[in-house]
Amino acid sequence: MLERLATWSRKRSPWVFHINASSCNGCDIELVASLTPLYDIERFGAILVPSPRHADVLIVTGTVNAQTKDRLRRVYEQVPEPKHVIALGACAAAGGVFKGCYNVGQGVQDVIPVDMFIPGCPPRPEAIMYGVLKLLGEVK
């Protein structure tokens, strides 16, 4: 019973913390756009929180480069359990067009575990919404 209540509340209230791990801004502005009136992801209870300690879902954009790698890991550790990670955009999923540059890695999953990949360069706000909702469908 308590378990079901917890699952229900988790599905209905994903609080998002956004990390830009050296992204080009494209995914970031589309993520912010998904909060704005035309898309309004708050319909599903998702809000952008300013502190990682408040977050349930970590959205990472950008190629994780050498500078942001450690910071990403540190922020990930600050998020209380249960937590989920979304890799947003081609760069976060696999390095995108920057794959092979000397300073960047091959996506977020090399640094922290990822629960959902949303490819696209950048993905439409609807695609972001689809990804978040798909993640919520899998939350247990």
Partner: peptide, 26 residues
């Protein structure tokens, strides 16, 4: 915008869901 919508009728249970979720969190 529309604001909270799917949690209960017109999203009226949204604050409750937020509260409970935080209660069950680490």
């Amino acid at each position: 915008r529309i604001g909270p919508k799917i949690t209960g009728p017109s999203g009226i249970l949204q604050p409750l869901a937020d509260f409970l979720k935080l209660l069950f969190k680490e």
